[in-house]
Structures are given as structure tokens and as C-alpha cells.
């Protein structure tokens, strides 16, 4: 019987290793996490088995967590905006260039993807530090007299996150921009559109699917960020991610950590879902 199924559906055999991997080590842990969220949470004890909805109620009451959530949402706005602007410019430039220039720009874009987050955060720390790059320039140019530490604030967290989000967003936008038929822009020009009008009427609306995906990506990344803000921010810049890690690693309250994780998971998944629907909507013309 089983052999039959596999012979009839060959693809199943090929998908099987991945599906086993995902169901044992991805699906199961998340299901267990849901169960964990109903255990009794006791700080420094990881968890005590049982059943309670107290963790969820605590989340509803927990003013501190609410402020962290709000803060992370606030953080995501400038990150999304800045990343999209920079990424769009870069992607546009790449899509308009060819040969060696295009190669170099793509390499520059992609290369940071594999540099780990700690290194990126650390290097920005060095740049913002009291005796770091920026202070060096500012003092030498006589703009300020005494070096002052510039890091550990809202701006440094934003910059670090933008840096991390850029490569993926550029690539997403690039794939959309590369697929715009250049004769559409020529047609617009032919019909009397200026360069600016061509951009506003044709290029920009046609890259909307990429913009939506890119924005969703930046949002998800910021909401779940943990390494970057814990290096580049002060305690004031604690994101919800840091708080979750804190519950799990330091406070050792796994059930409450689970609840927060589930909340975050809901936020990120629904964002991706909505962005997907929106993208399909805006790109309904892309399907033949």
C-alpha cells in the first residue's frame, strides 16, 4: 500500500526528507511551544507542568511588554522607510546598469548577507564609539571639541537594522525592476511623459509588488530583531525580541516566553500573509 502511494506520487519521495525535517524539528517545537504557553510559569524554574491561562492574562496586563511592543512598532516605521528609499535607489541603479558595473553593485549588495549580525552590530559600535570613526571626523573637522559617544540610542539601532535589511530588500526590488519591460517606459515617453512622469506613472506602480514585499520583510525583521538592538541600543531601546530572549534565557520563565513568542509569531505571520495578498492584488496584471 505504502509503496503504491510513493510510486503513484513520486514527488512525495523527493519531498520526504525535507518534510520529515520540518515536521520533527519545526512543526513539533512550535506545537510544543503552544502547550508550553499553558504551563505554569515560575521565574528561574523554566516551567512547571500543568494548565493555566494565567500567562495569557499576564500578557494582557503586562504594561512593560506593551511599551516594548509599541516601541518596536515605532522602530519599524523609520527602518522600513529608510530601507525602502535606499534600497529602491540602489536597485534602480543596478537595473539600469550592465556589465562590470552591475556585477560590482550586486556584489556589494549581497556580500553583507553572510557577515553575521554580531559583527555588523560590533562594527557600528566601533563607528559610533567615543573614539570611533564619526567622532574622529567630527573632532578633526572642528565641528565638535570633545568626542562624545554617539551610539546606544534610537538612531544607532535604526541604522544597524537598515544595514541588515538592505541587501534582501535591494534584491527583492531588483527582481521586480528587472522584470519591467523597458518598452513600457519608452511607450510612456512616446506618449509625452517626462522622465519624472514615467517614473511616477509606470516604474513606481509596476514595482509596487516588490515594495510591499520589501516593506513586509523589513517589518518582520525589525519586530523580531534581537541581536542588533541589544548591541546598538540602550535599555530604552529594548525591543520585544530582547524581552522574549530575556524571559527565556535570563528570567527562565518559559511559559511566559512562549506566550510572547506566540504573539510575535502571530504578528509576523499575519504581516506576511497580508503582504502576500496585497502583492497578489497589485500584481494581478502580472499573471497572463
Amino acid at each position: 500500500m505504502k509503496v503504491n502511494v510513493f510510486q503513484k506520487h513520486r514527488y512525495l519521495v523527493l519531498y520526504l526528507p525535507a518534510l520529515i525535517l520540518f515536521s520533527v524539528f519545526f512543526l513539533t517545537p512550535f506545537v510544543l511551544m503552544i502547550r508550553m504557553s499553558f504551563f505554569i510559569g515560575k521565574p528561574l524554574h523554566c516551567y512547571i507542568e500543568g494548565f493555566t491561562i494565567e500567562n495569557y492574562l499576564r500578557f494582557l496586563r503586562d504594561f512593560y511588554v506593551h511599551t516594548r511592543l509599541m516601541f518596536t512598532l515605532q522602530l519599524s516605521a523609520p527602518v522600513i522607510f529608510l530601507t525602502l528609499v535606499l534600497a529602491y535607489i540602489m536597485a534602480y541603479a543596478i537595473s539600469r546598469s550592465s556589465g562590470i558595473k552591475r556585477l560590482i553593485l550586486i556584489c556589494v549588495t549581497i556580500f553583507p548577507i553572510w557577515i553575521n549580525l554580531v559583527v555588523i552590530a560590533f562594527s557600528w559600535q566601533v563607528i559610533f564609539a567615543r573614539y570611533g570613526l564619526i567622532n574622529f571626523f567630527l573632532t578633526n573637522l572642528g565641528i565638535i571639541d570633545e568626542p562624545t559617544p554617539l551610539g546606544y540610542n534610537f538612531l544607532s539601532v535604526v541604522i544597524g537594522l537598515v544595514h541588515v535589511c538592505l541587501p534582501y530588500t535591494i534584491l527583492t526590488l531588483l527582481s521586480v525592476l528587472d522584470n519591467i519591460d523597458p518598452t513600457l517606459e519608452e511607450a510612456a515617453k512616446d506618449l509625452g511623459a517626462t522622465k519624472f512622469k514615467i517614473f511616477v506613472e509606470v516604474t513606481l506602480p509596476m514595482s509596487m509588488p516588490g515594495i510591499i514585499t520589501g516593506a513586509a520583510f523589513c517589518f518582520v525583521w525589525t519586530m523580531s530583531s534581537f541581536v542588533i538592538p541589544s548591541f546598538l541600543g540602550s535599555p530604552l531601546q529594548k525591543t520585544i525580541g530582547i524581552e522574549i530572549a530575556n524571559q527565556v534565557l535570563t528570567a527562565l520563565n518559559w511559559p511566559y516566553g512562549s506566550v510572547l513568542s506566540i504573539v510575535l509569531l502571530c504578528i509576523t505571520s499575519s504581516t506576511l500573509l497580508i503582504s502576500n495578498i496585497l502583492r497578489e492584488r497589485t500584481a494581478r496584471w502580472a499573471k497572463q
Binding site: F26, P29, F30, L32, M33, V220, W221, M223, S224, F226, G241, I244, A245, V248, G257, S258, S261, L264, L265, T268, S269
Partner: peptide, 9 residues
């Protein structure tokens, strides 16, 4: 899926 959540799970 955010790595943070996968790690914790």
C-alpha cells in the same frame, strides 16, 4: 519565520 522564534522553540 523569525530565527529568534525558531531558536526559542
Amino acid at each position: 519565520t523569525p530565527s529568534l522564534l525558531v531558536g526559542i522553540a
